[in-house]
Amino acid sequence: MGATPVTTSDWTTEVLESDRPVLVDFWAEWCGPCKMVSPIVDEIADERSDELKVVKLNVDENPDTAREYGIMSIPTLLVFKGGRPDKRIVGAKGKAALLKDLKDYVS
C-alpha cells in the first residue's frame, strides 16, 4: 500500500477536501534524501491510516502545485487540515523523529 500518489488534477478532492488530516510527501526521482524518507512515509501510511491520510506528490510532474505551496527544498512534508497547510517538515528524518513531529495528528 503505502502513500497514494496524487497529482495537480486530483489535488483538490484528494487533499483539500479530505475529512482526515493529510500528510503530503513532496518528492522527486532525482532526490537522494527523498528515497530515504519515502519508505518511512509508506510505513506511516500503512500503520496510521485511521488517523492520517498519506499521499505523495511528484514535484517534477506537478511543479505548479509544489510552487503554490512554496516548496523550495525536498523532501518536504506538509500536513493539510481543513484544506490548509498546518505543518511543514523540511528535510530527511527518521521514523521516530517524524512521528514526534506528527504528534498533533497521530496518537
Partner: peptide, 9 residues
C-alpha cells in the same frame, strides 16, 4: 543540496 533543490530555481 543542489541536486535535490536546483529544480526549484
Amino acid at each position: 543540496c543542489a541536486t535535490c533543490d536546483g529544480f526549484f530555481f
